[in-house]
Design a binder for these strands. Structure first.
Lengths: 413, 413
DNA sequence: GTGTATTGTTATTCAAACGAACTATATCAG
DNA sequence: CTGATATAGTTCGTTTGAATAACAATACAC
């Protein structure tokens, strides 16, 4: 039940029904392809005659195509319809501190080429590198170059203002208030979309994975890596907040005597669960340091200390100190997830990040901590799903940024 | 940008445009009444001819009526249109531990009669009392009785499942899993709506106060009383969560060494800011107890201790101990609001409850604590608005529960 | 080949926005 | 008092598009 906004309402015109229904047909074809007109008519509970002009328009606009016929027990064979992806490319870029990635994908999110590079130190240098790499990617893989490229999705490790395409602040890169969308769009010459990493991951799940909203109206995507980010999807929409800061669960203080955080305060959730803290826990446990850890996050990595992937490997091979570090982190993750459950109460939570590779070790302490800190006390009400390939979802999110507007519901009312 | 749900989508039919536009017209009339057809046409950017049939339907269905003509500089005088409230009543009931209230209102939320009563100890007894009082209210004030009553809104101090009308759990009343909507509807014989108190308050602001969403897309309603509840409104919709527990910021642990909470844990936001804690703070300060308060919430009220209204009065008259108690509570409220800003990032936060009567004392420490705990560090980005009359908004919310469906946007797409 | 089931198209009807012309009613200038 | 002008509201023909039914196309069973 939505209240009509008396300033921004949208009147229905005489072409509104067709526009609305065309979008619905496109979404159904995407989800159930290959699918015939007759099957669509059954799913939509309309006569087949209603579909003929709708499908014709989608075919003529190039959104879908007829892909031969299928066999049936008897009667005329149905013509199957599919979403068209050939010749419709998207460039996806995932910018991070240290290493960045760029990929060529089709509109459905199938990656066709992928390369990574050192992240430049300034936005201007980044724009240059992107300009060069994008044109090379298009030249080598795409016949018609820019024309068949639908857009460029740019995912950034920081806060983004989606309305004007500005990067508000990226702490690790040290970049602040930069009109990156315009800069990149001008240099590359392709329509550019820009978003923060956790929101992009939620975008990828929402728009390119039908599973995400199958049995559930809302979900959260929690990425646990160098920092902690949360993307929230509610009723098919991504929550951004009035000032683009929604989902900042990472800096909720969970333990006033906890380790110091980049934000200057103590015991933020991020400081309790980020990779460097997990590594510190491992080092402390392995070297038999004092029982009470004095964790100071973000310090230069200890010389000789393993990275998070190595800690995960050692834990999976049974090394006790590593297992202990992971289970401690898992419990802290669970406490934070409880926070998300209490405040947004999503139906599902995806947890992404390097340590989820060892999910079999994390699951039990995580769920226990979650149960102890939620109102219901029942950790099984909310599905928690591990998602190891955070990099993949950031790139997929970049693709989703470009393709989502094609499938979005028409705003009416 | 909303993703179309491929299971629950709504096709547009040939009557959809009219249904959509009729709702828009109704909302515009409600907001700008009295208003002429010509003025509506200008606001909607359509010809006057489009409005004639829309307005005719609304008049014929009794939703609006023509209220004379207005003067203009020259030309034919416009016929003014108004939403019809005469002969359209709503019963509002606000159930709390201790005292409950019931009121007769028109559909616009103007209260016509109001009475309060001791809350019965069992749901069955409550249903009986409601049955008696409702029929008496209708007999004395409403000419045609039940027929001109549009519905009964029931606001409860606990978790409610809106889909089936069950009260899931009301901690203070000790009621659990009761099909209250059916029980009340059967006894009273009026269509019944049921909701939790914080959500009802957000409902009241969203549906019956045009100010709430004027310059802002989202807001939170925070009620600070015996407990703490938060209702969240986002793009014209109230957020409920997958299992009806969204907005439970009250039990986020803010201070692991804080006072014990009803939920069994320590240092929940609710335990830090609820009225009984503020009273404890006052008693400790006034009697010169130990510097470190050992607050134990929910204990039987100290013999001779003042209630919260008295503490507020004493603070406003300048008593230092009371002022100190209020400012301490204000700082804790600010910390919790920072949590809401970081995670939900609303454009505005309404704070309701007895202590907001002393807003001039609360504002400064509250904003300071808020600024210290938000990502942006700027407490002025989010409007914080005091709202003293919590009781009024709970009743108004009960009215809104009944009238909202009349004005809601048509679900399409 | 004939009967039947299934798919897809076409023509007709009905609902409603759109646009222009029309009526009604006011003020103002002379 | 009369005509010019401005504004409000209605009516009617046009266009768009869903709803319905009839029809053509194509398969299989016998």
């Amino acid at each position: 039940m939505r209240k009509i906004n008396t300033r921004t309402f949208r009147l229905a015109t005489r072409s509104t029904p067709r526009d609305v229904n065309r979008r619905i047909v496109l979404n159904l074809i995407r989800e159930y392809q290959p699918i015939s007109r007759a099957e669509l008519a059954r799913r939509m509970k309309v006569r087949r005659g209603t579909l003929t002009p709708l499908v014709r328009e989608l075919v003529e606009s190039g959104s879908i195509f007829e892909k031969g016929t299928a066999a049936t027990a008897r009667g005329r064979r149905p013509t199957m319809l599919c979403v068209r992806t050939r010749g419709r490319y998207v460039i996806a870029a995932d910018i991070r501190w240290g290493k960045s990635a760029i990929a060529l994908s089709d509109v459905a999110g199938r990656m066709l080429a992928h390369e990574s590079f050192e992240t430049p130190l300034t936005p201007e240098a980044l724009v240059d590198v992107l300009g060069m790499r994008v044109s090379k990617l298009l030249q080598t893989h795409v016949p018609h170059g820019k024309e068949s490229c639908q857009g460029l999705g740019l995912v950034l490790p920081g806060m983004v203002d989606r309305t004007n395409g500005h990067l508000i602040y990226a702490p690790r890169l040290g970049w602040r208030d930069i009109d990156l969308r315009t800069m990149v769009a001008q240099r590359v010459g392709i329509k550019t979309y820009i978003e923060s990493a956790p929101i992009a991951c939620a975008f990828a799940r929402l728009w390119l994975e039908p599973e995400a909203t199958r049995s559930v109206n809302s979900f959260a995507y929690v990425s646990v890596s160098e920092g902690v980010g949360v993307g929230l999807a509610l009723n098919g929409e991504i929550l951004r907040g009035e000032h683009h800061t929604a989902g900042e669960f990472g800096h909720v203080p969970l333990d006033s005597s906890g380790p110091e955080c980049v934000c200057g305060r103590r015991g933020c959730w991020e400081a309790l669960v980020c990779n460097s803290t997990t590594v510190e826990r491992y080092v402390a446990a392995a070297t038999g340091s004092a029982a009470r850890l004095d964790l100071r996050v973000r310090r230069a990595r200890r010389p000789g200390a393993p990275d998070i992937e190595e800690v995960v490997r050692r834990a999976r091979s049974g090394e006790l100190a590593a297992v202990r570090a992971l289970t401690e982190t898992a419990a802290e993750i669970g406490r934070g997830l409880a926070l998300i459950v209490n405040t947004f109460n999503p139906g599902r939570i995806y947890v992404g990040g390097e340590i989820t590779e060892a999910w079999e070790l994390l699951e039990r302490p995580l769920r226990e901590a979650m149960g102890n800190n939620t109102i219901s006390g029942n950790p099984d009400l909310t599905h928690v799903v591990p998602d190891g390939s955070l990099q993949h979802y950031r790139l997929l999110g970049a693709v989703a940024l470009v393709t989502a507007p094609t499938y979005a519901a028409l705003a009416v009312g």
